Simulated scan of single mutants.
Amino acid sequence: MSMDIKQIQDLIKFVSKSGVNEVSIEEKDFKITIKTNQEPTYVTASLPTAAAVAAPVAAAPVAAIPASSPAAAAVADESANYITIKSPIIGTFYRSPGPDKGVFVNVGDEIAPGKVLCIVEAMKLFNEIESEVSGRIVKILVNDAQPIEYDQPLFIVDPS
């Protein structure tokens, strides 16, 4: 039995959602261990840059969750309809694809599902973070080249 990257990603998603601390699978030609009891917990997604991943470090799809965290509470008071886009991974936040290139999005820009919002670098892998919602960028909560944590709010979006 051999596992392709998609099967490994699905397994990591399953383990991270199940609450299990560790899963280990060993066959004669490979061994995989997934641990979720450590900080940070890594989950996975089908991002193009994740296909070349050798360690169990990839990115989760950006979860569009209504603003309810303490960091987003001030904005949530203004409008309970805003959506907070959070980081799916730990890494370094970049607003543009390169130092001499334009930013992906600015405050006031309209976004739609699939629109690249930023890049998060994790262990030398540059993961494009795509929107899963439609709306207008109200606020960008992170500075360019700033280290970010898993689940840290990155953008506030007005879906109306």
Score class of each variant (00 low, 15 high):
113 P>C: 13
107 V>A: 10
80 A>W: 09
63 A>R: 11
4 D>Q: 00
128 E>H: 15
155 F>Q: 04
121 E>N: 11
9 Q>W: 10
2 S>W: 01
73 A>T: 09
23 V>G: 02
25 I>V: 14
153 P>N: 05
139 K>F: 08
44 T>E: 06
117 L>V: 07
109 D>A: 15
58 A>G: 14
75 V>N: 10
31 K>G: 01
138 V>G: 03
53 V>G: 08
20 V>D: 01
9 Q>P: 07
147 P>C: 05
77 D>Q: 15
43 V>G: 13
142 V>L: 12
37 N>R: 07
18 S>G: 04
129 I>N: 15
127 N>W: 09
123 M>W: 13
89 I>W: 08
61 P>V: 15
81 N>C: 10
91 G>H: 11
119 I>R: 02
130 E>K: 04
6 K>I: 12
135 G>V: 05
131 S>N: 04
64 A>T: 10
137 I>P: 10
127 N>L: 09
67 A>H: 03
100 D>L: 09
110 E>V: 11
90 I>V: 15
160 S>P: 08
88 P>M: 02
49 T>G: 10
106 N>E: 15
49 T>C: 11
82 Y>L: 10
14 F>T: 12
159 P>F: 05
48 P>A: 05
102 G>E: 15
78 E>G: 09
153 P>Y: 07
103 V>H: 14
21 N>M: 04
140 I>G: 13
99 P>W: 06
103 V>F: 14
51 A>R: 13
97 P>D: 08
75 V>G: 07
2 S>K: 04
142 V>A: 15
51 A>C: 13
147 P>L: 08
32 I>F: 00
45 A>G: 14
69 S>V: 07
54 A>V: 08
111 I>P: 09
158 D>W: 02
18 S>Q: 02
70 P>R: 06
28 K>L: 00
9 Q>K: 09
2 S>G: 09
117 L>R: 04
125 L>Q: 05
17 K>S: 04
143 N>F: 04
150 Y>V: 09
20 V>P: 00
43 V>E: 05
141 L>E: 08
63 A>L: 14
82 Y>T: 05
38 Q>T: 12
53 V>K: 01
152 Q>K: 07
11 L>M: 04
24 S>F: 04
72 A>F: 07
149 E>Y: 05
146 Q>R: 02
100 D>T: 14
57 V>F: 04
96 S>K: 12
51 A>W: 14
122 A>E: 08
3 M>D: 00
